[in-house]
């Protein structure tokens, strides 16, 4: 009989409040609740962690690495880059 290793869930981990959630890997789990528990044991047993997200891998939509045009910036777009302007630095907000 063929085996089941369950569905896969992608795991996103937040190390501290204020930081973004980062993708750290995946777990095989039967359902979202168990996926969270398994993500805790696999990805937060050493790392500091304040929050985990899991999402079914099959629910993720992704761009195609082989589509060269999706992110192309062929023409000059420097007009929207702060570095392209000579205004005094104090017009920028202080870095937090």
């Amino acid at each position: 009989m063929s085996d089941t290793q369950w569905e896969t869930y992608e795991v996103f981990h937040q190390s501290r409040r204020g930081r973004p959630h980062e993708h750290v890997g995946s777990v095989h789990a039967p359902d979202p609740e168990m996926a969270l528990q398994m993500a805790r044991d696999q990805f937060a047993r050493r790392l500091d962690c304040v929050s985990l997200w899991v999402v079914r891998s099959s629910d993720i939509a992704q761009t195609d690495y082989q589509d060269p045009n999706f992110f192309s910036q062929v023409f000059d777009k420097s007009y929207r880059d702060p570095k392209a302007f000579d205004a005094p630095a104090r017009t920028e907000p202080a870095e937090s």
Partner: peptide, 11 residues
């Protein structure tokens, strides 16, 4: 029974 549970039970 499965790797993820191996990790959980070891914890």
């Amino acid at each position: 029974p499965i790797l993820e549970e191996d990790i959980a039970f070891s914890n």
